[in-house]
């Protein structure tokens, strides 16, 4: 697949058209739901965390633009199998870096929506989470 204009690079389009970890976990141990007040996009995350504090599985559901959906796909891939301590390292910078495309301030909000849902599910990260 070729690259599109602006932020629509091949990786983003691939994750948008064929998202990983889409759906809802039932049962789950943690849930987070966030929306972007600018555009009404919504993301719901469900996670199953095992006795060793490891994120055994994670799914996302929601409606949104290519940036927020691709970001959710990448983020869920990244945290799956991690311990909650390791998850705490996921922050704004790492999410934007994983997307790997230039984003305007408004579009950054789209990219960060899944991370907000993750924080809503697991609670704020102890350190790191500056802004």
């Amino acid at each position: 697949m070729g690259s599109g204009p602006g932020p629509y690079q091949a990786q983003i389009l691939e994750h948008y058209k064929h998202p990983h970890n889409r759906g809802t976990l039932d049962p789950s141990t943690h849930k987070g739901h966030e929306s972007n007040s600018l555009c009404g996009d919504e993301i719901a995350l469900t996670l199953r965390v095992d006795g060793a504090n490891r994120i055994e599985d994670v799914r996302f559901d929601g409606e949104g633009c290519a940036i927020s959906m691709a970001s959710a796909s990448l983020l869920t891939d990244a945290v799956k199998g991690k311990t909650l301590d390791e998850d705490a390292a996921m922050d704004r910078a790492s999410v934007l870096q994983s997307l790997g495309v230039p984003l305007s301030a408004v579009r950054e909000q789209c990219a960060l929506l899944p991370l907000r849902a993750l924080r809503a599910a697991l609670g704020p990260a102890p350190a790191a989470q500056g802004h």
């Binding site: 204009p5 932020p7 555009c39 290519a66 789209c110």
Partner: peptide, 25 residues
């Protein structure tokens, strides 16, 4: 395409349109 993505691609072409709920939820 989601309205946000429409607006972003149009922006690359120098075309300014709006996307969102337009303060009319």
């Amino acid at each position: 395409a989601h309205p946000h993505d429409i607006a972003s691609i149009l922006d690359v072409e120098g075309v300014c349109i709006r996307s969102g709920h337009h303060c009319a939820q």
